[in-house]
Design a protein around this nucleic acid. Sequence first.
DNA 1: AGATTTCATTTGTCAGACATTTAGCAGCAC
DNA 2: GTGCTGCTAAATGTCTGACAAATGAAATCT
Lengths: 244, 244
Amino acid sequence: MKKSTENPADLSARIAGEIRDAIVSGRLIVDERLPSEAELASQFDVSRPTVREALKRLAAQSLIRTQRGATGGAFVNRLRFEDAYGQQITTSTLLLSMNEVSFDVACEARFTMERACAPLAAERRGPEHLARMRAEIERQQQPDLSDEAFCASDVAFHRALVDAAGNPVLSYQLAGAVEGMLPLMNMITFTARSRENILRLHGEIAEALERRDSGAVIEALSALEHYTLQLGQQVIVARTARQG
Amino acid sequence: MKKSTENPADLSARIAGEIRDAIVSGRLIVDERLPSEAELASQFDVSRPTVREALKRLAAQSLIRTQRGATGGAFVNRLRFEDAYGQQITTSTLLLSMNEVSFDVACEARFTMERACAPLAAERRGPEHLARMRAEIERQQQPDLSDEAFCASDVAFHRALVDAAGNPVLSYQLAGAVEGMLPLMNMITFTARSRENILRLHGEIAEALERRDSGAVIEALSALEHYTLQLGQQVIVARTARQG
DNA sequence: AGATTTCATTTGTCAGACATTTAGCAGCAC
DNA sequence: GTGCTGCTAAATGTCTGACAAATGAAATCT
């Protein structure tokens, strides 16, 4: 009952773990101030640099924030979605880029979840969501758009679709799944023809959402999944050829 | 173009950011060894403790691992799902427990994603998944089971369902959504009657999955969502009453 | 009373040292 | 030559002590 994690870890990791447990279990509540570094050092019977390493670990996970000065110190951070987004995206990106996950699997997961959002989005979408989607469609029509900008706009489009579901947890999960695929998507060369195909499907999605026709949204998303998979295959082939 | 993050941050945060960018962008590849702490200190023109704080930040995100000894050092870590799970669960748990997300919203997100797994699971489920689910159902029937153990078994049951979809990214996302709700679920007092209801639905899910009837799985999951929401409401009421 | 100064507290950073771990090499015995 | 032993060097882990910078609050002056 004394130490939650296994023994032979680094001191700073152990201390970070103990404080993390205290936060997650609720023994330390939001905005509560932790003891000063010197006090923690004496409590855990270690030096201040060791305590600092532990605190930096927690700061990296956005569990605490620090403040300098007389009334400063380390405070339990109220985890915000923006903070969680960043970590989620970093993690997803790495899982993909390190080949731990294939493009196909990531693609399937992404569109599976996105389709799951369709019924909610069809029910709850507001005019602002339609406007955002239409704006991105318009941008995607500009012929002098770079491939990277096209990808970014594509992400924004799907982001609007997911946000229309009105559930921040879904938005958060999808952010990782969609933006994590960005690096690979950015390797795709979008021909005029492929842009045309994508644009047509985006248009269908927007229209279906306006009609609150979730079935049509799902259908268009499935078509888009199939097409994205095709485009992704080309990148995979090119990449493995270069590596081999 | 020189520094990706804003200027007035801590040195250790800036250094961690630069190394993180190098990893995410692929300039540092998996299992590559970073320069020693002393070399990094001289490269960034800071002291070794500062470098160490930066490295601990990265270690907290499982981006690097360190090894002591002659050929030791910091190595770019191949991010594994197990590592990602832990962080995902911690993050989800905190988002919920800090009231940043309501139980209803989390519940909706969870079951929405879980239903999305149903078609894949119905198609790909193997005997081992059915066996795991049946084992958990059996455990849940034991009348002397504590509420916490019942919850844990419930999580394991749904975990098996999601794993049956055969997509590790979905498993990863759902792990956060489901296990993040555990602390709140653990506050529920499961009466004999509520256990009976849940067990019946679990049985329906397992049977439907065996028949590869995704429609029936989705139906049972929706019923379970509705019932979970009811149980959750009681907890919310109790909690706000205690706080107010 | 209000403005200014001083001060104590706390985090941020640095320098240097020692402990510990670990791989590789040299040397010795067989 | 082979195999074991011990040494050595390199690297991380930890400690001590110190100073810099920020910041709020108390003390002081006008």
